[in-house]
Design a protein around this nucleic acid. Structure first.
Lengths: 263, 263
DNA sequence: GAATGTGAAAGATTTCACAGCG
DNA sequence: CGCTGTGAAATCTTTCACATTC
């Protein structure tokens, strides 16, 4: 995360905790909804509920931004929308390119949330010549050959990678070389980037695996409510289905790594 | 705190920290890759690099699972793959349903990582009658009317919601009522679920907004230093994380942002 | 000699709880 | 009063550094 590191003991100027930054979009969304319903003010309690967090956390988060509330009353919706937008840098236009226009890329291109919040899809890029020119979400798909010029001409600094895992690193390198400094990666690969470039990853199978972990746990407690200390209650999950041998079993075909991302 | 629940720190039996659970899939992926290359053993250092974390953290993570390494040598790849898979509950088959078959739903259905790691797409469900019967990723799309029976008949406990924001809560309620206890939500909405149901959220615009925040920051400081190309594998301070927004969000969670999710 | 496993220190985040302002 | 803003306490995570084991 390219943050910590460096020299400066503290970028004191504005040390907003990373955890708080990650929640600001959540608050912003809830606030936008309120704004559209013309609600003038909200209490930390109400807003917290709408955003899915608890009020103490929300107030603490806001305290890092400044004192934008009014005691005894709450927060002014419009004002807060503006302050958070500004803090997140959404008051300016961010052109982004999406590389890899398969199902996922197309889904992203059509995603309304993009345009509605300061992000503008500057171009859709795909390596398949057959895709070139075909319109997706109203934009003609451009060929990978044009990647560098597109980045440069549009001043793009944020790139979205939705290619198969095998092409991700290469695409990443080209994006970075062309000037992109922030990447949202959907390919199941760990990308190597030079210092100064931020990468955020969205990985479907990881999310599912985390759910499976908790699901498995639930299944195990079901039967024995009590909690056995120790006991490797591995848990035999619900009746469900059969089961795969697994054990020393060979790694299945394609693990994740060579995984294939729709593209 | 929205919920009154005072349930114990859950995670009782085997206290594996949530942060560690979230990284296990990462290790598993790296290990699977090594396994396919027939690499017999790895050191914490090597594996950590491949997974994009540092070795101390990796060793600490593994220490929660047990002592599966050999001092002076490292870890046996196959053995570790098995142990982590078991811990995550991937040695069994998890049938999942995907609701909302638009671009995103189709992308998910075609996502290779799904099937390869213990997850099996039991059914694709969409509310559009015109979609019914159409094959997507080799499976015929089923109509929402069948949702309950599909869940029941297949013993599905994990559901993926890829519908527009407006339909998410309703779909969620039906899934839960039918027996689903883990949900992966792609719709930009905070879902209200009863206690005991886990919800994980993947939100594209949030990820982009977080990137924008850092991007904006960069623009404001000419970091000249760092020429040290230190192949940084960006880590990502996962926000909230798993398990839990239970509790009733009063307010109408529906409307939410005008955001539109492809569906 | 090499690399794991792990107490203990250092940090970061969350939660408490209440003083203080409108 | 009602609700924000915030020190301080409680938790959770990460990092250190080294004894321990192969």
């Amino acid at each position: 995360m390219a943050t910590g590191r460096t020299h400066r003991p503290a970028t004191r100027s504005r040390g907003i905790p990373e955890a708080t930054v990650a929640r600001l979009p959540l608050y912003l969304r809830a606030l936008t909804a309120l704004s559209e319903r013309s609600v003038p003010t909200v209490s930390s309690e109400e807003l917290a509920t709408a955003a899915g967090v608890n009020s103490a956390k929300l107030r603490k988060d806001f305290s890092y931004l400044g004192s934008y509330g009014t005691r005894g009353v709450g927060y002014d919706v419009e004002y807060l929308v503006y302050q958070i937008s500004r803090e997140l840098g959404l008051t300016q236009d961010w052109p982004v390119v999406i590389v890899g226009i398969g199902n996922l890329g197309a889904a992203l291109a059509n995603y309304g949330g993009f345009a509605s919040r300061g992000f503008r899809v500057a171009a859709l890029i795909d390596a398949d010549p057959a895709m070139a020119g075909k319109p997706v979400a109203g934009l003609p798909v451009r060929h990978t050959d044009e990647l560098e010029s597109i980045i440069t001409d549009n001043g793009v600094s944020i790139g979205v990678i939705a290619t198969p895992a095998g092409a991700a690193q290469q695409v990443c390198d080209r994006l970075v070389a062309a000037g992109v400094t922030s990447i949202l990666n959907f390919a199941p690969t760990v990308l190597s980037v030079p210092e100064g470039v931020d990468v955020r990853k969205v990985d479907l199978s990881i999310e599912l695996q985390i759910l499976a972990f908790h699901e498995q746990r639930k299944a195990g407690e079901e039967t024995s409510p009590a909690q056995e200390t120790a006991v490797a209650a591995a848990a035999q999950p619900r009746s469900g289905t059969g089961v795969r041998p697994a054990a020393g079993g060979r790694k299945g075909p394609d693990g994740d790594v060579p995984a294939v991302m729709p593209a």
